[in-house]
Design a binder for these strands. Structure first.
Length: 698
RNA sequence: GCGCGAUUAGCUCAGUGGUAGAGCGUCACAUUGACAUUGUGAAGGCCGCAGGUUCGAUCCCUGCAUCGCGCACCA
């Protein structure tokens, strides 16, 4: 007999332990009779960053992945859901920097090894917390295979890839103007740049006979040339000539070159070339190396003026800009200022600092040769992305891809296995010999996580054979380029195959006012907190209903409470059915109405199955919810009540058998969504055939 | 600038070539007999606007408006 109420607080842990004890999370330990000839099913869990606790976004992913895994496991597949955690290089470094800052410390003053150990311990602690949280959410993943992105075997895979790419000419070290964050003191990839709209003054400056417009007069000291469009008739007479101009530090001479990158319609159609502090200018210089001088660095890594800048040395950019404009006015080369020029400024996606383009030697991945097969693979139907529209976004990005800077000037991450001696470079895991110094930089974390599916399976050889390519990659649409596209490219490169067949992208979790949840807004709903309050099943259901691929999902405590009520309803349905148990060896004599109910149930199940196969989790969940509450409870059970109360024994038996059958099927269908309450009910069912509902036959 | 979406009941969102659905909310009534209540019923929508295709469009096409997002070396 069931208790009068479903007590999630006391039952959830007990139930999870029961599952773990069964061993069925591990595909190798599933009941043999069910897996002998069965197909594999594999999801690699996106490894959460080991730099904090799980949030609602993680809960969405874990819920959907668990629904798929449980569904397929019940269908008899050999299911592997492989969990892990990401060291999350830069992101963790940022979190840790903040911590150091609070303690009045600075990472640049801590020896590399000591800092490494501290961050290592920090991530290991987070990893443990996240593991406990994942369990609390009911995840039926195989903990015996849990992997960390810094596990030595994984690091070896990453090294192999880098070496192979180096051999194949797909990585190169080059001096380029990179996206430099003056706060975090590292370069960032193009994806880590966030462009924000700003309103700045546009300065019109005289360069001898020419005038040009710029928002960055402070870079004036780094100018090495002027440029115009080759077809611009206004300036044809100046092309190839050297003009003389008045400068802050004295007279200047600039050659005027012609380059197609100059837009004659913008400003005056003349630009100054500052190769050290503007990526476009740097590229223009590479096309005119014979004609004009190269980069002249006048901004340092902290974003201060340096070098030949006269009295402005040491000033921060913003301050220097105003003072320099003032000076230009004094000497009469400032023609005018347009006050409200709206433009996009590159900022650090983490701290919002304005990025400083500065030249740095870095490792780059040549992307075109990797992107092309990734485009072809999608077009050839080797995998698909849900929602479908994301495929267009994926293709658009790949078609316009640029080389990828994978060097980061931080210590937390996989150190780049490159060694330098004088002008020589060698790629090697170990020091090649005396006198060789290792590159101090680490890889962009996405360079290693981009290899995650095959890395996690390759380090256990059999798994790669059995489970690669995996079936589903479930993750957020915000990391389609960061992660998914790179996994496709690197997967194709290393294994010849796309690492997954279906990519399912979920949306961002928003609060009831559609606001993005963030700590600073204070509108964060902690998934573990509400799970504690209303039960994990309620949280999972709230995260599933109304959640469609690629769209943001709105969650509120009201919604969760609603599904808590549903859990209670299900529990009470079970209580009612079991309370009315009729013991008899006789067979039930189903009426026409009964048979109609049973065939309707069958149709329901077919529909739910179809929805799950189509990744329409929200529709499957809603359908079951509606069926259990408004069909089973409201109609079928209500109709059974008089039969159970007043009928003859055979009548009572039939009515009982009817609702017991429907209950059994209902909890099975509901199990992938609400695993705890359904398991607890199952454990009390007379029709129970398996140790746990988790391996019941769907 | 290029690209991708969205626009359906008060709110959050599903959905289909044949004159619209769910959850929550609201209102009325019933109910302590499995249910931290639950049940029954009701109100509430020119399915953004304008054209087109069609026997017929909320659903397909075109344009427009508004909102959102992504990408981008316009100084």
């Amino acid at each position: 007999m069931l208790d009068t109420r479903y007590d999630h607080k006391n039952l959830e842990d007990k139930i999870y332990k029961l599952w773990e004890k069964s061993g069925y999370f591990n595909p190798d330990r599933l009941p043999k009779r069910r897996t002998l000839n069965s197909k594999p099913f594999c999801i690699i869990m996106p490894p959460p960053n080991a730099n904090g606790a799980l949030h609602m976004g993680h809960a969405v992913g874990i819920t959907l992945e668990d629904i798929m895994t449980r569904f397929e496991r019940m269908r008899g597949k050999r299911t592997l859901w492989l969990p892990g955690a990401d060291h999350a290089g830069f992101e963790t470094q940022v979190v840790f920097d903040k911590k150091l800052d609070k303690e009045g410390r600075n990472r640049h003053k801590i020896p590399r090894e000591k800092l490494w150990t501290e961050i290592w311990n920090f991530t290991q602690k987070n990893k443990e917390t996240m593991q406990a949280q994942t369990k609390k959410l009911g995840a039926s993943c195989d903990w015996s295979r849990e992997t960390f992105t810094l596990d030595p075997k994984v690091v070896d895979v990453v090294y192999e890839t880098f070496e192979k790419m180096h051999r194949d000419g797909l990585v190169y070290r080059d001096l380029k103007v990179v996206n430099w964050c003056p706060k975090h003191q590292t370069a960032l990839s193009d994806l880590e740049v966030k462009y924000v709209e700003r309103n700045d003054p546009l300065y019109h400056i005289k360069y001898g006979p020419l005038t040009l417009a710029t928002v960055r007069p402070e870079t004036k000291f780094g100018d090495t040339a002027l440029a115009v469009n080759p077809h611009d008739k206004r300036y044809r007479q100046y092309i190839g000539k050297t003009i003389e101009a008045k400068g802050i530090l004295g007279p200047l001479k600039f050659k005027v070159i012609a380059d197609k990158a100059v837009d004659p319609k913008f400003g005056t159609g003349v630009v100054k070339i500052t190769p050290a502090h503007d990526a476009t200018d740097f590229e223009i210089w590479t096309r005119h190396k014979d004609e004009i001088p190269g980069p002249k660095v006048i901004i340092d890594e902290r974003g201060c003026l340096t070098g030949e800048v006269g009295e402005f040395k040491g000033l921060k950019i913003a301050e220097a800009r105003e003072k320099i404009a003032e000076k230009m006015r004094e000497i009469g080369i400032l023609e005018k200022i347009e006050p409200d020029y709206i433009h996009q400024v590159a900022t650090c996606y983490k701290c919002g600092s304005t990025l400083e383009p500065i030249p740095k030697p870095q490792w780059f991945v040549k992307m075109k040769p990797l992107a092309e097969p990734a485009i072809k693979a999608l077009k050839a139907g080797k995998f698909r992305i849900l929602p479908k529209r994301s495929e267009k976004v994926y293709l658009h990005w790949l078609r316009n891809i640029r080389d990828w800077n994978i060097s980061r000037q931080i210590i937390w991450g996989i150190r780049i296995p490159a060694w330098f001696r004088g002008s020589e470079t060698k790629i090697s895991k170990k020091r090649p010999g005396p006198g060789w110094e290792q590159d101090p930089d680490v890889f962009d974390t996405w360079f290693s996580s981009g290899q995650w599916p095959y890395a996690t399976l390759q380090i256990r050889g059999g798994d790669f054979k059995n489970f690669y390519p995996t079936d589903v990659m479930e993750t957020g649409y915000d990391i389609l380029f960061f992660w998914v596209a790179r996994m496709v490219m690197l997967g194709l490169y290393r294994t010849g195959k796309v690492p997954f067949k279906t990519v399912y992208l979920h949306g961002l979790v928003r609060d009831k006012d559609r606001q993005k949840m963030s700590k600073s807004k204070g509108n964060v709903i902690d998934p573990l907190g509400v799970a504690d309050l209303y039960g994990t099943d309620a949280v999972r259901m709230a995260l599933t209903v109304g959640n469609t691929a690629g769209n943001d999902i709105v969650i509120s405590e009201d919604k969760i409470r609603g599904y808590r009520n549903f859990a209670t309803k299900v529990w009470n349905i079970a209580r009612f059915v079991l309370m009315n148990k009729v013991k008899s060896g006789a067979k039930p004599k189903f009426t026409a109405a009964d048979r109609k109910h049973l065939s309707y149930l069958k149709r329901m199940k077919t529909q739910v199955t179809k929805h799950l196969e189509r990744f329409e989790f929200h529709l499957a969940a809603e359908k079951i919810y509606h069926y259990i509450w408004h069909e089973f409870a409201d109609k079928i059970i209500e109709a059974a009540k008089p039969r159970l109360k007043n009928g003859k024994k055979s009548e009572r038996l039939t009515a009982y058998k009817l609702i017991e059958t429907i209950l059994t099927e209902s909890v099975k269908m509901l199990h992938p969504f609400m695993p705890f309450v359904t398991e607890e009910i199952y454990q009390n069912l007379p029709s129970k055939k398996e140790k746990v509902i988790m391996v019941e036959n769907w």
